[in-house]
Amino acid sequence: MGKSNSKLKPEVVEELTRKTYFTEKEVQQWYKGFIKDCPSGQLDAAGFQKIYKQFFPFGDPTKFATFVFNVFDENKDGRIEFSEFIQALSVTSRGTLDEKLRWAFKLYDLDNDGYITRNEMLDIVDAIYQMVGNTVELPEEENTPEKRVDRIFAMMDKNADGKLTLQEFQEGSKADPSIVQALSLYDGLV
């Protein structure tokens, strides 16, 4: 993909415009910024974590950033290329609610087996709590990752089998306004 070129080839721009919710001009602008920050044309896990640390200076986002990195890194080569970056950004910032929920499901399904187990969710929720640090005051019933996961599973795990399917996750998330709101945070920002 033209590693350190400051412009993408027209056919690449066209393809990314088809695969995302961005215009050709927006794709070019994002590429310019991506190459400025990642001259090699790729972003590794350490660089990704560094970006998260800028956004969450009062907590430790390392663990959460690693989980997000793994979802962005579609081809699992340990690096995020621009096409992976822009497609994930498109879903998280401008995707439909169902697209965002499928993306979030992939984030929580750490072993990619098609289910979110209690332990997988606990890993992610714990990482989120570490990331936000003491900057967020949580209600008593959610002031630990374990309590939050218990509440989520009580609401979403309809067949009580200890794991969530994509359908259970989507339906449960849509029924909880706070989850829908959290997924909409990026709307309109890009």
Results as ranks from 00 to 15, higher is better:
residue 19 K to L: 10
residue 17 T to I: 15
residue 8 L to Y: 10
residue 172 G to N: 15
residue 36 K to F: 04
residue 186 Y to K: 03
residue 179 I to N: 06
residue 102 R to S: 12
residue 118 R to M: 09
residue 13 V to S: 10
residue 154 A to I: 00
residue 58 F to I: 01
residue 21 Y to G: 06
residue 89 L to S: 01
residue 103 W to F: 07
residue 139 P to K: 08
residue 36 K to T: 02
residue 10 P to T: 09
residue 51 I to N: 08
residue 90 S to M: 00
residue 15 E to K: 14
residue 186 Y to T: 00
residue 106 K to C: 03
residue 32 K to I: 13
residue 152 I to L: 06
residue 89 L to M: 04
residue 22 F to H: 15
residue 146 E to S: 09
residue 58 F to L: 02
residue 114 G to R: 02
residue 34 F to I: 00
residue 146 E to I: 15
residue 115 Y to G: 08
residue 21 Y to F: 11
residue 35 I to N: 07
residue 149 V to S: 13
residue 66 T to V: 03
residue 178 S to R: 11
residue 180 V to G: 12
residue 46 A to C: 05
residue 24 E to T: 02
residue 94 R to W: 15
residue 25 K to S: 13
residue 119 N to V: 00
residue 109 D to G: 03
residue 186 Y to M: 00
residue 188 G to W: 07
residue 65 A to P: 12
residue 99 E to G: 10
residue 54 Q to V: 00
residue 120 E to M: 02
residue 51 I to A: 09
residue 4 S to G: 08
residue 88 A to P: 13
residue 79 R to L: 02
residue 23 T to V: 05
residue 66 T to I: 10
residue 107 L to A: 03
residue 89 L to N: 09
residue 114 G to N: 09
residue 114 G to L: 06
residue 158 K to M: 13
residue 30 W to V: 01
residue 99 E to H: 01
residue 69 F to K: 14
residue 69 F to Y: 00
residue 40 S to M: 02
residue 52 Y to V: 07
residue 17 T to K: 09
residue 9 K to T: 10
residue 17 T to N: 15
residue 9 K to G: 01
residue 79 R to G: 08
residue 59 G to K: 06
residue 134 N to I: 09
residue 27 V to K: 15
residue 82 F to R: 10
residue 159 N to W: 01
residue 144 T to V: 12
residue 82 F to M: 06
residue 26 E to N: 09
residue 131 M to S: 11
residue 100 K to P: 00
residue 17 T to R: 08
residue 77 D to T: 15
residue 109 D to V: 04
residue 139 P to C: 05
residue 143 N to A: 14
residue 9 K to M: 11
residue 42 Q to H: 06
residue 4 S to F: 02
residue 44 D to C: 08
residue 60 D to P: 03
residue 28 Q to Y: 13
residue 50 K to E: 14
residue 96 T to C: 08
residue 67 F to S: 09
residue 95 G to R: 13
residue 74 E to K: 13
residue 157 D to S: 07
residue 69 F to H: 08
residue 91 V to K: 11
residue 70 N to R: 12
residue 133 G to D: 07
residue 87 Q to T: 08
residue 173 S to Q: 04
residue 18 R to E: 02
residue 85 F to L: 11
residue 123 D to H: 11
residue 17 T to P: 15
residue 68 V to L: 15
residue 134 N to D: 05
residue 107 L to G: 02
residue 83 S to N: 13
residue 76 K to R: 08
residue 112 N to G: 01
residue 97 L to E: 15
residue 188 G to C: 00
residue 138 L to P: 04
residue 36 K to C: 09
residue 39 P to I: 00
residue 28 Q to G: 13
residue 51 I to Q: 07
residue 49 Q to W: 06
residue 56 F to K: 01
residue 68 V to A: 10
residue 118 R to I: 08
residue 84 E to K: 15
residue 151 R to V: 12
residue 137 E to L: 10
